[in-house]
Amino acid sequence: MGEALDKLISYCLAAYTFIVIGFFIYFPIAILYVYSVNDTPYFIPEWRGFTLEWFAKIVQRQDLLASIWNSLIIAVFVTCISMAIAIPPSFYLVRRRGRIRDIYFLYTIIPFIVPWIIIGVADYILFWYLGIEKSLMTAALAHVVYSIPLVIIILTPRIYSLDPALEEASMDLGADELTTFKNITLPLIAPSIASAAIITFAWSFDNFIVSYFTLGNELTWPVWVFSVIGKVPRIMPVINAMSVIVITVSSIAIYILAKKGLTELI
């Protein structure tokens, strides 16, 4: 009796899980795929035949291509800068104890536990106050603010789980700190660094709110989509087509990286 009930519960949970993932998570994305090849500029529940016209139109939209390019540039810049700035404090925060460390931890983490809009608005006001003209650069600078704590949050638990005996052994055998770091520590945390870099890149590429407040005339992909939705006629299918490309490429990339064990996304 108990066994049968257990089985029944398991089946119900399985069905529930697959329905939620299959229908709820994937349904809106499936719709984008369908309409990116449906031969109509409108969202009508009707199949008008297969077309690749919308994909061809992507190339005609210079603003769209520029926005993708801008997003990529910002994401690369943000990833490099925030990794360089945030890796050393991650070690410090793990290996120190005491009051200064706790305060420092809070100091670096607070930008992460406030809504992104705060970073956007604060930097918007800063750039206005200093009279700096907003551009891709100002947006990238603002992205680094939430990326620093992001990298720290991803890295610290993994640095914490490193066995300090390995580094001590290396030092005992006469290696100096730099050699030890290069040959022992770095290879051990390389996967974590890779995942921190990938998540930082993805979040920056995807970020809307911070970009929205700190960009100038050149837009990133999410901000561009926001700026044309409902305003530019017949742009929807082109957005669909581009979205399909972005989703496909990013999904394949994430899948491969996860498969190869290069990144721990979870």
């Binding site: 993932i21 998570i25 994937y26 349904f27 809106p28 994305i29 719709i31 984008l32 309409y35 969202f43 993805a202 590429f205 995807d206 970020n207 809307f208 999410p222 989509v225 926001f226 939705i229 957005i239 979205s243 972005v246 989703i247 990013s250 999904s251 994430i254 899948y255 996304l265 979870i266």
Partner: peptide, 19 residues
Amino acid sequence: MIIPVEVNYLIRIYAWRVI
């Protein structure tokens, strides 16, 4: 479950408009 959400925040909002 995570793959489709990592990079497509705004696009997914927009997909919901269609539904």
